[in-house]
Structures are given as structure tokens and as C-alpha cells.
Design a protein around this nucleic acid. Sequence first.
DNA 1: CCATTTTGATTAAACGTTTCATTTTTTAGG
DNA 2: CCTAAAAAATGAAACGTTTAATCAAAATGG
Lengths: 335, 335
Amino acid sequence: MTKDESGGKRPTLKDVALAAGVSVATASYALNDVGSVGGDTRRHVLEVAARLGYRPNLSAKAMRTGKTSAIGLILPDLTNPFFPALAQNVVHAARESAYSVFVTDTQGSHEAERAAAQALIQRGVDGLIWFPINDEDTLADLTGGLPVLVLDRDNPRHDLIQIDVDSGGRMAAERLIRAGHRRIGVISGPTDVRSSRQRSESSVEVLRRHDALAWHLHNAYSFDLEPAVAAAVADGSATALCVGADLIALGAINTLRQRGLRVPEDVSIIGFDNIPYGALAFPGLSTINIPVEEMGIEAVNTLLRRIAKPAESRRRLVFDVTYVERGTVAPPPAP
Amino acid sequence: MTKDESGGKRPTLKDVALAAGVSVATASYALNDVGSVGGDTRRHVLEVAARLGYRPNLSAKAMRTGKTSAIGLILPDLTNPFFPALAQNVVHAARESAYSVFVTDTQGSHEAERAAAQALIQRGVDGLIWFPINDEDTLADLTGGLPVLVLDRDNPRHDLIQIDVDSGGRMAAERLIRAGHRRIGVISGPTDVRSSRQRSESSVEVLRRHDALAWHLHNAYSFDLEPAVAAAVADGSATALCVGADLIALGAINTLRQRGLRVPEDVSIIGFDNIPYGALAFPGLSTINIPVEEMGIEAVNTLLRRIAKPAESRRRLVFDVTYVERGTVAPPPAP
DNA sequence: CCATTTTGATTAAACGTTTCATTTTTTAGG
DNA sequence: CCTAAAAAATGAAACGTTTAATCAAAATGG
């Protein structure tokens, strides 16, 4: 009457076949719903398998078929609050299709990134969802023919999921202009990332056109501002900031507050990413929202599709961003 | 001269053996550094393997040995900022030992938790690091004899890594008393989690002893306060809050600000967890720090040790917490 | 009712390792 | 030198699947 009829060990396909009085082959066929097996036997095998609590050994299956139904997710930095939401949705979407996800965090090191990819490939993952730390195309030679979906970066050989950063950068700049600002500073992420450059470039372009660009600086994706950036932020040279990442924007707010400046009364700020912290800050950070949930889901969908049909032509998905107004934008202070 | 000598396919152990002029058995022994193989042959095999770029097929190895050198990490909610740091350290520590990590996020659903565990077990993970959503012991019957390390929860059968929550709860309460508060509210997490109950109970005990307990309420682990909690927080019945989780504490700060109350001038707050947001809030959230990095590392260490020696006696590690003073504690406002 | 096709079930090989049992070679001892 | 023991190398089985190649039985058609 217990679920476990044999002596403690996990039942194997052979056990099922034996118990059902049938060959291993038919058992396999029945369980996988392929080949020609009679309706009665099929039902019987299924029933027996269920009774024994049979679960196929995925290692064995993997060796035979070459498919592990596992994918790898390579992220630059899990502690950057942008990524957990992505990871969460990837994991869930994958589970819907009975895939499991190896997650790695490369700490922004190319070294670690290479190692992670190697390890996952050796593990035999069926595909990779990869958010590279920058555009450097170290991937292609590693991955061989393995299906890879690249997130947010540019890459000539793989499926891509990107966001319409140009439009985001423009929205932010225009909103600040519309609020009346004429001395606007731009902080963007590292220069070796194209999507990061683009975010700021489109902002800069708009600001130039309105002759409203105070300065343009770069900062790592982090709360901590580099000294030069912190100085520029707080020296009054700009009445508004157009920042390429919420993380940096929150850092900027912090710096401003520490120097006794108020947001948004003295300085307005718009971020980018819409990380959860932003909503919680006081006042809430106005920012550009990236539909990270959908991106995660769509990432696994396109990856799985590619795994199924390796020959299909390359896909590139671009997601729209939206401006979300909260509390960090106001007119410039009266001079 | 290229790395790939054969026709595109990944080289197998047989290929290595062939190229080295030796049997597969010796090749295997040489590469795994076991059995008795001559120094010269060993070196030669290694050299050939390197030249061919041989990587063992882990699925095959897994099937033969029953070990996958993969572990599973089961977390309640990746978007709770407490967990990414943990996950990061688990992943890294695992990689040090050539283990990969399947990450799952159970969204606080027992259903999903069960499913995740099942899936991972079927995958043949060598062990599980499990942060259960509450104390309910649904695990044991699922996991069978599989090595499991339980985080922060109580569990009679598995290795445990916990934190000294009592002392944390006490520290927080005492700090507020010392600041002069006599009407202190306590907000703790869900009641079905022992560690959560404990956090608050030890606070409550201290406060009772000083006759300084205003009220004691519960809230989900989330930024959003339930109406009753929000009301209590803002109705002036307490001049200080002792909160069982930073997430909730930040939510409380938010609520207070929206009602026009200042932190810490009107209300002091101490959180618990030391999530990254806390440092960034303004003023910085005073809180109880949990050494989450060490916990992550120690979790994989103890798990791997258990995997190696299943019979060793059960281990229970308790980590100390520390109070970190930032800006949310001040004397109560003059009446 | 026999020849043919269709359906249902089976046998056995294969996937890439590890490892036991065995054989071959070398070394040591007398 | 011969024998015994130790060291090095090998053949083959096994792990749990899938699947191609067969085979047997049942259904079909003339």
C-alpha cells in the first residue's frame, strides 16, 4: 500500500516494465507517448508507473538524448536589484516548460563570465540566457553552436532581447526640459556597454538640441558615486539630472541629501530601470520603466523556440519602455 | 593547430584514449588521478586531453556515479532583497568546489515549493539548500535521504544554519529603550515562521520588562503595510518601532512620511536584516545585520560536507547578528 | 483462406563514463 | 636466472534511458 514497493531505491524504468509485465522498450514508449503501443498496455504502464512513483532519471535521459532540459542564466550581478526580478521570471517561465535553470553571477568579471559559460556548457545545458557584462564578443567562440539568447547587449550571431533605450533616454530628457530645466547633467553607466551609451546619447542629443546640457559623466552601476561625479552632482552646476540607471540615481539622491540639497526642490532627477527601491524612496524616484517581467518570460520563450528549431532565422525583440512619474521631478528652483 | 582536431563534435574519453594510445580505462584513471597509472602515461594522457580540449560529459559521469555535482537552492522570493546576496554567495562558494546551482524561487507558495523540490530531486542534485517559506515540515517526506541544509527555519532532521535572532530582537529593543522611548510598537513577520516569532518575542519580552510595549502586530514580508498596521504606525501611539524585517521597516518609514511624520524626529525605527536598500534610505535605516555572505558560504560548505559524509551527526550553526546604527534612532519627541 | 499490411511488442545497441576483475609487464628477492 | 610480488594497463560490465531493427500477431483484402 505504500508508494515504495521495492527496497528503498528509486524505481527505474526496468522496475516499471517488470511490474507491468512488459518490456522496457514498451514501457519507455508508453511513458513518452510515442511509438505504437496498444491503448490498454499504455494505460496499464502509466498506472503502474504512477503506483511505483516512478520518475525518469534525467541524467540517463540526458546522456541518451543529448538534451538536459536545463538552461543557464548568466547575470552580471545579482545584487543589482534589476536582476532578481528578471531571474525570477526566467525561472518561472522555464519551469512552465519543465526546464530548470542554473543561475550564475559573474561579478562583473570577464574571467568569471568565461568560466561560468564553460561550466554550464560542460554541464550540457540546452541553451543559455546571457546578460553579458559588456559588448565584448567573447561569447561566440565559447558557445559553439549552442543556442544563446543575449539580453540588452548587441551581438551579431545570437537571438537578442533589447529595450528601446533611445526612446527612454529621450523621454527622460524631454520631461526635464518640459519642467523648465535648462542646466541638466547626464550620468550614464560604463562606456563599454552599448546600451548604456545609447541611453545617455539619446538624452544628450535632446538636451543639446535645447541647449540644456550642463555636463555628461559616467559611473559604474552602483550606489556609490565616483568622486568626480559626486562633485558635479552637488556643485549646483545642474538643476536636474538625467541618470542612466536607478542605482546611480539613488546614489545621487543620497549624495545630494548629504550635502543638504533637497530633491526635487533643488535638483530634479530621473532614473532608468524602475528597480523596486525607486518606488520606495521618498519621494519616489521618477524613472523609465523596463518591462523586466515580460523580458524574462520572452527570453525563455525565444530560447526554447531556438532550441527546438536551431535553423530558424535570428530573432531580435525590442521592448518598449515607459516613463513613470513619481516624485523627483519639479520645476527648477527660482534663481 | 586548432583546438578541435576531430570533426566538430566534442571529444569523448574514447577519443582521448585513442589519441594517447591507451585504453579508456587508463585514460579515465589518469584524468581522475586514481588507480595505478604510470607517471609518464598519466602526464601524456593529461597532455593529450588538454590538446583535444576534452571535457568530461557530466551527464554520463552523473549516471555512472550517481553524483551530479549540482545542488539546488530553494528560496521563497528572489525579489526580497535579502535573498540575492545569499544566492550570490551560494553560487560562488559552490563554484569554488566545481558545483553548479539550480536556483528556484517559490513565490511563497507551498505548492511551488513542493514542485521545485521534486523537480530538483528528479534532476539528481546532490543536495539542497533550502530556505523554507515557513516551518511546516513538508520537506522530510519529499527529500528522502537526500542531504538538505535548512536555512533560518527549524527542522528536526536536517542540518541547520540559523541566526541568533533572540539577541537581535533584544538589541533592537534595548537600543530604543536606551534612547529614551517608552511607547514602542513591534511589527513582526508572519506568525507561522518560528524565526520570525522569535525575533519579535525577544523584543517584546525586553519591552514588557521595561513596561514600554505599545502594541505588537504582524505583517507580511513586504513593503506594503496592511491597513491595521499602517494605522497603528501613524496614529501616534508609539514613538518608536521595532520591526522584524527591513522590508517592512522601509514600508513603515514610507507610510510615516506620507502622513507627514518625520523619521527619526517623530518616530524612531530599527529594522532587521540589513538589506542594501536600508543603507541607502535617507536617513539610513538602523538595523540588525545578518552576516548573509558568510551564511551563504557556510551553507554550501556544510552541505558539501554532508554530501561527502552522510552519516556524520547533524550540524547546527548559529550566526551572531550585530546592531548597525545609522540614522533612524533618536530620542522621543518632547511631549 | 492465403497473402499482405498494419499494429503491437521485443531485442539489443548505444550514449560516455567509472570501476571491477583480469591480464600483462616490471621490479625485487633469493 | 627463476619465481613471487608489485605495478601498470586492459577488457568489459554497468549505470538508466531511447530507439532502430526485428519479430509476432492481428487485421485487411482479394
